[in-house]
Design a binder for these strands. Structure first.
Lengths: 160, 160
DNA sequence: GTTCCTGCAAAATTTTTGCATCAGT
DNA sequence: ACTGATGCAAAAATTTTGCAGGAAC
């Protein structure tokens, strides 16, 4: 079954989970760091480092770009974030839920929009595959490239 | 020379295929451009733009970095290349075979090594999924992240 | 009071672009 | 010849790093 992005996976919960994981790993819950965590938690979709910094600035909570990058690096190292490279633009990040629940992405090659999808069939196939490989699989990313409906409709004439 | 059938699957064949596709699309087979194509064709595995430029320089065939990037962009646009972003380091490229045959990648998060794999089960699942999505799927990438056997062994010894 | 973290700015990387010149068709 | 492609070098875009000062524990 194809579900439209498990939107309601409690993001509030993820923020708390992240704070707890940071604490347990001996890291401080500083204001700038938590600002990054909260920004990620408020948007279940992918965000770039710049987007996070910009959103924080527009909220009046200025956080240096370097701090954003350092926070992202730390969070990813703790398995709290998933990193997504679309081949267009900078790296994007999104919360990784402790349940292991996750989604993958559709990337429109025309307008660059990224949208999530889930599919149990693909997950099952990847699970079976992982057991057969001579490699310790710890995660996977699936990116479907193509054109979103809006861009298909727009055709090659206009931009999305 | 290889036969037509074999040409579709080998790298020699891919170089010819690429040259033909360029010509048919109205592009010139200039020496620098073909040098990039040949370098990609000689290495079935992924290469970065810098690696291509470096290999060419060490062969005495100097090609400017800009030309390498422009060639890669053109080839990717013609569907002759697959682009791979591992999350570590620059974008990598590899030949896309006209048969549609393709593989995916295992990326070791410890040593950064990238190795290919194929799996029909995953391909089938993705095919079925593509038919159900409200999106025109034109391609897909699957990346399995984890640790290669060498790094698992090293990690066991040194507490990775 | 330590020690880790932040912000700034500079540097390192990767990729793109402008433009005069050159080469493929 | 015509037109696209190249090379250089400068710029843009993204990410990393050094270091002095500041905040969390």
């Amino acid at each position: 079954m194809v579900t439209q992005a498990a939107a309601a996976t409690d993001m509030e919960g993820w923020v708390e989970h992240a704070a707890e994981a940071l604490r347990r790993a001996g890291h401080r819950s500083s204001a700038p760091r938590m600002a990054v965590v909260e920004t990620l938690g408020r948007h279940d979709c992918v965000l770039t480092a710049r987007e996070i910094a910009d959103r924080l600035r527009s909220e009046g909570r200025d956080v240096g770009v370097a701090t954003v990058y350092r926070a992202l690096e730390l969070l990813e190292g703790l398995g709290l974030l998933h990193r997504l490279e679309t081949g267009e633009g900078p790296t994007r990040y999104e919360p990784a839920h402790p349940t292991g629940e996750h989604h993958h992405h559709l990337v429109c090659e025309r307008c660059g929009r990224v949208s999530p999808f889930e599919d149990q069939g693909v997950e099952r196939s990847l699970g079976k595959l992982a057991r057969r490989l001579d490699f310790r699989v710890e995660g996977h990313d699936v990116v479907l490239r193509g054109k979103c409906v809006a861009c298909v409709a727009a055709g090659a004439a206009t931009r999305c």
